[in-house]
Amino acid sequence: MLKPLTLFCLPCAGASATMYLRWRRLLPSWITVQPVELPGRGSRMDELPEESYAVLTERLCDELAATMPEHYAFFGHSMGALLAYGITHGLAARTLPLPAALFVSGCAAPNRQDSECYVRIQGQAALIADLRKQGGTPEEVFDNPELLAMTLDLLRMDYRVCGSFRHVPLSPLPIPIHVFGGCADQIEAEKLNDWRLASTLAFTLDWFDGGHFFLRQSEEVFLLALIKRLAESLIEVPHEACATA
């Protein structure tokens, strides 16, 4: 019987943690889905947003470290994957127990990040074009000027976070890293494969039909793979994952 596990889920750029709420009824009972809301959106709308990757990951690390369960894992899609990576290293630096595994989706490895591309996408036209290219935004948002303005403001802030990321060589994490990619996404295979450099343990890369938001376009198949990888992490990782920073 598998141990109960809390899955902390970090949102992609321009989104709220509510993007993961439906998983609570789709994943098995041994997985507790815990969406991580970022400052300045959703239930934290009254807080000032952070626009620095280093500041945001340190803040989230402090918040999560205070209530970390015994068995947990991180999942992040796109920007959320980069945040999950930073938080995990923050926990390692504090010599705190690490997650059973790190699950990253639709995100190039840290050493393959092109921070400058986010700096270039700041104007309204460029942001709208990028939203349409990614394919994860309902058409109703584009038809509603007020909703579109809110979405663009949030996306602009998040792209500043991504644009402030700077890759610094760090010791590989002593936990498995499981990567998910979309066959039609523009992130090349080698940029996903390089996540293997961030871990000293198991590495997997699973592909799904769809573009950048394959986790919605192929949701059923994707969630089955996620459940499988989560179960493997609980079974295969007997270590007390603590920092070796």
Rank of each mutant, 00 (worst) to 15 (best):
R156K: 11
Y118S: 04
Q34S: 14
I31P: 00
A92D: 10
T32P: 03
L83I: 12
Y53V: 00
S115N: 14
V104C: 03
F75H: 05
L83A: 02
L38I: 13
L155D: 07
T32N: 12
E116Y: 13
V141S: 09
L127R: 07
Q134I: 13
P28Y: 09
R132Q: 15
Y85W: 11
A149F: 07
P138W: 01
E50R: 08
A129F: 05
S105V: 09
L21A: 10
V55C: 06
A149G: 09
A125I: 08
K133F: 11
G86L: 00
I121E: 08
C162G: 08
L26Y: 13
D158E: 11
C107D: 03
A125H: 12
H71E: 09
S105I: 06
A129W: 02
D158P: 12
A93L: 09
T151W: 00
G76W: 02
A66W: 00
R132L: 13
R25M: 05
P145N: 05
V36F: 02
E37S: 07
S29W: 08
L102G: 03
E116N: 13
G106D: 06
R94C: 03
T151I: 02
Y53D: 01
A54F: 12
V104K: 02
N111H: 12
Q134D: 09
E70W: 03
V141I: 15
L38N: 04
A109W: 02
Y85E: 04
E70M: 10
R59Y: 15
D46A: 14
R94T: 01
T151L: 03
G135M: 05
T32Q: 10
V33R: 10
G90L: 04
L152C: 07
R59L: 15
A54P: 00
Q122K: 13
C61N: 06
T67N: 14
A73S: 13
A65W: 09
G86C: 00
L38D: 06
E51W: 07
W23P: 07
A92Q: 15
A84G: 13
P39W: 04
L154R: 15
N111G: 12
T137V: 10
L64E: 07
L98G: 04
G80A: 11
L131W: 03
C162M: 14
F75Q: 01
P145Y: 10
R112H: 13
Y118L: 06
P69Y: 01
L155A: 11
P49T: 06
T151H: 08
R41A: 07
G123Q: 14
S29A: 15
C107R: 15
S115V: 11
S105D: 01
S29Y: 10
E37A: 09
H71V: 12
M79G: 00
G90Q: 04
R59N: 11
A92N: 12
L155H: 04
Y118G: 05
A54M: 05
V55E: 12
E63R: 14
P35F: 01
Q134G: 08
I87F: 03
L98R: 03
D114E: 13
P39N: 06
E146G: 11
L96Q: 14
M45D: 07
Y72Q: 06
R44I: 05
P97F: 01
Q124I: 14
R156D: 07
T151C: 09
R25A: 10
L98M: 06
D62F: 14
G106E: 05
M68A: 14
A100Y: 04
R132D: 14
P39H: 02
Q124F: 05
A65N: 09
V36P: 00
A54W: 04
L148E: 06
R25E: 08
P69E: 03
